[in-house]
């Protein structure tokens, strides 16, 4: 029988799953994690099987990753999202030497040599430089995340956001609105501030190209632009950046199965 593997990436905001057969995609799904991680993991797995028309007849080798990886006790193996994101990106861009993964509650920079992780850094325990920071700032500006990205890209200038603390930065944003600064300029300032935090981590490991980006924030065009301009390099984006961790988990599963 051909080998079927399943990768589950249970993140802080969303749970992602990928089902592969001999490296071929059978199904991919994304659900909000919600408050009941174990239930979400179970639902995600069932829906993946249904979508891949697997029913109850197959027993894929399952690898769980992400902060909620322990929420999937039915998985055969758990592997950190560091290794999974690395493996996932190598599948799409084998030459990658630096991977930036910005998720809901953390960001990481992974250094790869010939497809292997040789070093990595994660954000300190602080929301600045993560998706959560962008969410809070969008809330302060009373726009959606998509609008935040769009208005930032359209803005001709930017205002500097000096607070690195998320809570203080939000009050700074509110103050800037009160003083009548255009939302687009503030949004661009927010993107720049986030990009600076992430770029500092990249620089700590050294800028090595090709550089790729994964995670939900990679879908935010304004953020990608800000990061590219901060780092002075072009970032390569995989087709579904949010799914890279799940892809990597499934591909690693194929090695262990």
């Amino acid at each position: 029988m051909s080998q079927i593997v399943c990768g589950l990436d249970i993140g802080s905001l969303t749970a992602k799953g990928v089902l592969l057969e001999e490296g071929r995609l059978l199904a991919a799904l994304l659900l909000p994690t919600g408050s009941n991680g174990p239930q979400t993991a179970q639902d995600l797995y069932r829906q993946l099987l249904a979508e891949g028309s697997m029913g109850g007849e197959v027993d894929p080798y399952i690898v769980a990753t992400g902060y909620g990886r322990v929420s999937a006790p039915f998985a055969h193996k758990t592997i950190t999202e560091i290794s999974c994101h690395a493996r996932g990106i190598i599948h799409f861009l084998p030459q990658t030497r630096t991977l930036i993964d910005v998720g809901g509650q953390d960001s990481k920079v992974i250094r790869l040599e010939e497809g292997k992780v040789v070093d990595f850094l994660m954000n300190d325990k602080c929301a600045a430089g993560t998706g959560r920071f962008l969410e809070v700032m969008a809330r302060g500006l009373e726009v959606s995340l998509e609008e935040l990205s769009r208005t930032a890209q359209d803005a001709k200038a930017e205002v500097s956001i000096s607070s690195t603390c998320t809570v203080f930065a939000e009050s700074e944003v509110v103050g800037l609105i009160a003083r009548g600064r255009p939302k687009g300029e503030i949004a661009r300032g927010v993107m720049s501030a986030t990009a600076q935090r992430i770029a500092a981590m990249v620089h700590r490991l050294g800028v090595q190209e090709p550089m790729a980006m994964s995670g939900g924030v990679a879908r935010n065009a304004g953020m990608v632009e800000a990061l590219q301009s901060e780092l002075g390099v072009r970032l390569w984006l995989p087709p579904e950046p949010q799914m890279i961790g799940a892809w990597g988990a499934a591909l690693l599963g194929a090695q262990y199965a």
């Binding site: 322990v70 592997i79 950190t80 999202e81 560091i82 992780v117 990595f120």
Partner: peptide, 18 residues
Amino acid sequence: RDYSLEQMRTRVEGFLEM
């Protein structure tokens, strides 16, 4: 008070995998 086993575990396990 700011400790999270899960955050630590991700870092440590990622390191061991490396």
